[in-house]
């Protein structure tokens, strides 16, 4: 048993798994940021964030379909506008969910907003399932295929079978770049802008923030909008990467991103990024070494271990970064 396990380790394509894990992890990180920001500011888990990710997927495809029927298939423009549409729609959902499901429960018992969040997540999921139908959808190949070309081949493999081949595709580069840019922009916003100061002030002392003139409700709504936008972009990237969209995608990826946020230290922004990357890489190595059926066992075992051994996560609530 052990021997065969060690033997299977030897053949693990670690370089490629590191690449695919990082790419996937960067998308988890974008979703995890939404969880962690909302937690930071409200001490509440917005479980509906995973569904916003899913709505982002469908909104992009819907936007692209609408535009291409409106004026034809201009690949780059339609894709960008599709993402913009997804961000706007997801922001509206994020804002709306805050207004409807959470604002009035802000001072209620901690279980109330949590239950409300779970309820909202079911509502959004079933809503999409009813509206678009619950069979899987395909991301239009016309828009994702142009990104499929190989940017760099790291290890030349057998061209007939692909054995031993390792490389990075344009789409992977784009996903990593987009994620990096968005995270940099987020760090800048939180640390170098007034609204960032206001967000951190609200997270530390809501009443005092209001007393110095910060419109707390607006800042909280803004936090939801930022988190939702990141999740929506992650949704677009994820659906391009896996080529499919399902109404249930938000639960799976959302839970993993939530785990990432906990592992990094919920409320902690760099922690969410670190957690996302770790989850992505661990997941891919688990699939390769133990098999895909073990991925959730391992991920959620890690979640439990983190909660027991290091309840504040890897980076703790390192404070200056809390939003």
């Amino acid at each position: 048993m052990l021997e065969s396990f060690i033997k299977s380790l030897a053949g693990v394509p670690w370089l490629e798994l590191l690449i695919t894990g990082t790419v996937k992890g960067s998308m988890y990180a974008l979703i995890a940021l939404g969880y962690t920001m909302v937690y930071g500011i409200l001490q509440m888990i917005n479980f509906a964030n995973g569904e916003i990710f899913m709505i982002g997927m469908f909104a992009t495809v819907f936007g692209i379909a609408l535009l291409s029927s409106l004026w034809g298939s201009f690949a780059a423009i339609n894709l960008i506008l599709g993402v913009v549409f997804a961000v706007i729609l997801a922001s509206a959902y994020g804002y709306g969910s805050e207004r409807i499901a959470y604002r009035r429960l802000r001072n209620a018992h901690i279980l109330a907003p949590l239950t409300s969040a779970i309820g909202l997540s079911i509502v959004l999921q079933q809503f999409i399932s009813n509206v678009v139908g619950n069979q899987p959808f395909t991301f239009p190949n016309y828009y994702s295929d142009p990104f499929a070309w190989r940017v760099v081949t790291l290890v030349q493999g057998n061209p007939a079978t692909g054995a031993g081949d390792v490389g990075i595709s344009m789409l992977q580069v784009c996903i990593l770049t987009t994620a990096c840019l968005l995270m940099t922009a987020l760090f800048y916003m939180i640390h170098c802008t007034r609204v960032g100061i206001a967000m951190r002030a609200v997270s530390q002392d809501r009443l005092m923030a209001s007393l110095v003139g910060i419109p707390v409700n607006h800042v909280i709504a803004f936090t939801f909008i930022v988190g939702s936008s990141l999740a929506a972009v992650a949704g677009t990237l994820f659906s391009m990467y896996t080529t499919t969209l399902t109404w249930s995608a938000g639960t799976a990826s959302g839970l993993k991103a939530f785990t990432a946020a906990i592992i990094g230290g919920i409320g902690n922004i760099p922690g969410a990024v670190l957690g996302g990357l770790l989850i992505g890489i661990i997941e891919d190595f688990t699939i390769a070494i133990l098999g895909a059926q073990w991925r959730n066992v391992i991920l959620f075992a890690i979640l439990m271990l983190t909660l027991i051994l290091r309840p504040r996560g890897l980076l703790g609530e390192r404070v200056a970064d809390k939003v």
């Binding site: 054995a163 031993g164 997941e283």
Partner: peptide, 24 residues
């Protein structure tokens, strides 16, 4: 020889493994 979950949509790790094992 490996099983996946019915909900899985991301196969990159499976593909990497299959590649590394030299399947035809």
């Amino acid at each position: 020889f490996s099983g996946i979950n019915e909900a899985d949509r991301d196969f990159s790790a499976n593909i990497a493994t299959i590649k590394s094992k030299g399947a035809q």
